[in-house]
Amino acid sequence: MNWMIKAVWILLAFSGSLYAGDILVVVSKDSPVDTITKRELVDLYMGRSHSLPDGSPVMKIDAPVDSPVRAEFYQALIGMKVSEVNAYWARLMFTGRATPPMSVTKPEDVAGLLARNPSALGYLPEDSENEQLKTIFVIKEDQGAP
């Protein structure tokens, strides 16, 4: 078993700041939404849709700007770096038609916000499951670049 532990350590050492592992798209357990497609997720986070598939309003929550999970989320979802996504929103700032997701300052705030707000939508690393939330979509680690 010794060699397996060694291998995990090596993997962790190589991943660096990048988060390695599945990302869970989650909502409050009181939310009417049980599932969501990847496309609907893209349209929500890139500003095309303003509501959930069932028509109910939604509050999109982003991980902190420099967190590894945020980078992994956008890379896996649309194949863009965080800086590119920032530039995209900056271009749309003047039209006022689309609004970017709300960004939290600390990673641990995401779970709290989601639990308290049934219309909120967010994402978390796979190891941060909790009974207040329900997972509606899983972004697999190997889904990296779409």
Binding site: M46, G47, R48, Y88, R91, L92, T95, R97, A98
Partner: peptide
């Protein structure tokens, strides 16, 4: 982008 967002402006 404009077409994607259906942003007529």
């Amino acid at each position: 982008i404009a077409a994607y967002l259906q942003d007529l402006q």
